[in-house]
């Protein structure tokens, strides 16, 4: 994996998490692992417990009731009912939960839902137009770039990001920039072929 990729992705993510972490802590001090006693010492006037959080997913506004500690991934899956986005590790290591936020690929398990208010969130359910598949989806089927299919939503979202970023110029580049998405069935060469084909079609 290239250090560039790790660097670029993790710096941005860490910064965002820190910023939001402060906000979330102020909003509700009940993050996992903290003792409930902390609730007694919260600053006056802060709201605890769930609240309606507006999230725009695939062009549609949802307002799930959420605690601040809920990740975007769990909000999508457990509250909004969009289960296409998968949880493979819940700690940013596998890429199965990759979604696009304002066009940029992120791991939805590493961000809190409350941090994504007002942003355009795109999940794998939001790509096809009726029966017409997104070129990346079609290329994945045609190139057999999936087996069990569990990492596939994340691979597809990541592939769209990879192509839009201009990182699909060669097979070597695709491999490097798709290495944040693990596939245990190990379809990697077929995934490269699918991204290559879709990149050509989308150009």
């Amino acid at each position: 994996m290239s250090s560039d990729e790790i660097g670029a992705e993790s710096t941005a993510t860490r910064r965002t998490v820190l910023r939001a972490g402060v906000a979330a802590a102020a909003a509700a001090p009940i993050a996992a692992g903290q003792d409930t006693a902390a609730a007694d010492t919260e600053p006056a006037g802060t709201q605890t417990g769930p609240a309606r959080v507006p999230l725009k997913v695939n062009g549609r506004l949802h307002e799930p009731e959420l605690e601040p500690r809920v990740t975007l991934l769990d909000a999508l899956r457990e509250r909004i009912g969009l289960t296409g986005t998968k949880k493979g590790c819940d700690r940013g290591e596998c890429g199965a939960c990759t979604v696009l936020v304002d066009g940029r690929r992120i791991k939805s398990c590493l961000t809190l839902a409350v941090m994504q208010q007002g942003r355009e969130i795109t999940t794998v359910e939001g790509l096809a137009h009726g029966e017409r598949l997104h070129p990346v989806q079609a290329a994945f089927i045609g190139n057999d770039a999936l087996q069990c299919g569990f990492c596939t939503p994340g691979q597809v979202m990541s592939a769209i990001g990879c192509i839009e970023e201009g990182h699909a110029g060669s097979d070597a580049e695709i491999k490097e920039w798709m290495s944040g998405n693990l596939c245990r069935c190990s379809c990697y060469p077929n995934i490269v072929a699918a991204v290559r084909q879709a990149a050509r079609e989308l150009r």
């Binding site: 289960t83 296409g84 986005t85 794998v124 359910e125 790509l127 994945f140 089927i141 999936l146 597809v156």
Partner: peptide, 9 residues
């Protein structure tokens, strides 16, 4: 089952 797998269905 490819379509079901690439669309999240």
């Amino acid at each position: 089952e490819g379509v079901a797998k690439v669309t999240g269905a």
